[in-house]
Design a protein around this nucleic acid. Structure first.
Lengths: 251, 251
DNA sequence: TGAATAGTGTCTTTAAGACAGTATATC
DNA sequence: GATATACTGTCTTAAAGACACTATTCA
């Protein structure tokens, strides 16, 4: 694993945790890793190269686990306190094994790590999760049934979701999470799923259309034995402008 | 200076920058330091002890510069990219002088620092700024006429102010910035000053009173050859509850 | 009585929120 | 025609925003 072999490449005592949310078909999931030999899970994360920014580190981690570049992401909170020092269970299971020789008790890796939290959004149906050498699994977990988590990662997911909910009240969302052409019920479901509550369909479409970011197409989606919904797409210019300057969509 | 003498006390490659805002009498200021021998200024900041949390570090820095404890503060953003590597001007002016011997070019202090940004609020009339050994000055600067700043600190101040403005749209403010008893015009000025725009006095008091966080006292403030305004104080319980659960005060 | 600031009420406009019936596609 | 989902309009209520006159204190 490159970190221990090339530890001079990385900044010390600071790392990035990247909560990768995936949405598809009414389901919100989060990408988690299970280190080999443990039955606890972690969010994706990694160290920061001396030559890259923290944002570049977050993107690199996303690329590593999803194979995708250019996804929407946001910094939401930085965590740092002495209780975040490395988990003894993790230590015994890995470090000495990997390092070969016994590790001095005052080795710097035992100091605590400040962790910069980002969240990233994608459509999980487009992603083949990629585990690393040290992990047994890399899997999308439904946000409603998380497994046992290591460190403070469950809290981090909670805080990330909270930040995401605040974010979508002030900026448009969906570009990275929906197919290029989508129906009103689809984007309605997206909002309901992320916000975790049901939204009146009439008021929802009224307000969303009022923002102007949607373009109604002259085309319907065929979806079985009932009325076919119209397709929409985002007005790229308007969407980008609202992403920059904000838009009120408090539901 | 303790950092270089006891560098083992501190986390590496990560620090706290603390933008201390001060308000008094229609003026918003920020506490800045001028390192001796330079004509550029910095915000307050410091390193993080291995035994303390990032929040404790921010409070320690506040105490160091203001002598005050228990002020309101918030984390707002973390900055980190290779361009934040130590300023050569700063380096030549200080480091080698302080360290005595020549500093190896690959010494870890030349790697870039991730900086966790906090902002803190206080009433600047209550504060006697305290400079450290390495600084020539520690002074309150009006937010509207900042001097030449080092690093990315001008941007940090801008982002901190932006975060503060968003904050006061969702949480009450004033407890740390106003005297215990204050008048409606005084708190009106506070909001106008922080938001940087004028607010209709009738609508302002209507909405602020509607939150219930103010208690009107049976007492007026004597202020010269004109009508004396009533004094108010915060309803501590309501204020604390709104600080926790939020309140909408978008002006 | 003049100067300076405090204090307050109404109207208009806009947005939020509640609510239910019709339309369409397929079998 | 049965079923399943799409689609849409109106009314009520609450809040935002614009706006101007009277009250008080003191010199």
């Amino acid at each position: 694993m490159d970190f221990f072999m090339d530890s001079d490449m990385y900044l010390r005592n600071v790392s990035v945790d990247n909560i990768i949310f995936g949405y598809h078909d009414k389901e919100l999931k989060v990408l988690l890793l299970r280190p080999a030999g443990l039955d606890k899970w972690t969010v994706t994360g990694g160290y920061i190269k001396k030559t890259e920014s923290i944002e570049q580190a977050a993107c690199r981690i996303t690329l590593l686990r999803t194979g995708l570049n250019g996804l929407f992401f946001n910094q939401f909170q930085t965590f740092g306190n002495p209780k975040r020092a490395i988990d003894p269970e993790f230590t015994s299971a890995y470090l000495s094994k990997i390092m070969g020789s016994p590790i001095p008790k005052d080795y710097w890796i035992f100091d605590y790590f400040v962790s910069i939290g980002f969240y990233t959004l994608t459509d999980f149906s487009q992603v083949e999760p990629k585990k690393g050498e040290l992990e047994a699994e890399c899997v999308w977990w439904p946000i409603k049934e998380l497994p046992k988590m290591m460190f403070d990662h469950e809290m981090q997911i909670r805080e990330a979701l909270n930040a995401l909910r605040i974010h979508i009240a002030h900026y448009p969302i969906g570009y990275e999470l929906l197919p290029k052409k989508f129906t009103m019920p689809e984007i309605h479901n997206l909002y309901e799923t992320i916000l975790g509550k049901s939204l009146d369909d009439r008021n929802f479409s009224k307000r969303l259309l009022a923002t102007g970011i949607l373009v109604k197409l002259d085309e319907r989606k065929k979806i079985g034995p009932h009325r076919s919904p119209f397709l929409y797409e985002f007005d790229q210019n308007l969407y980008d402008e609202k992403l920059k300057n904000g838009v009120d969509l408090v539901f």
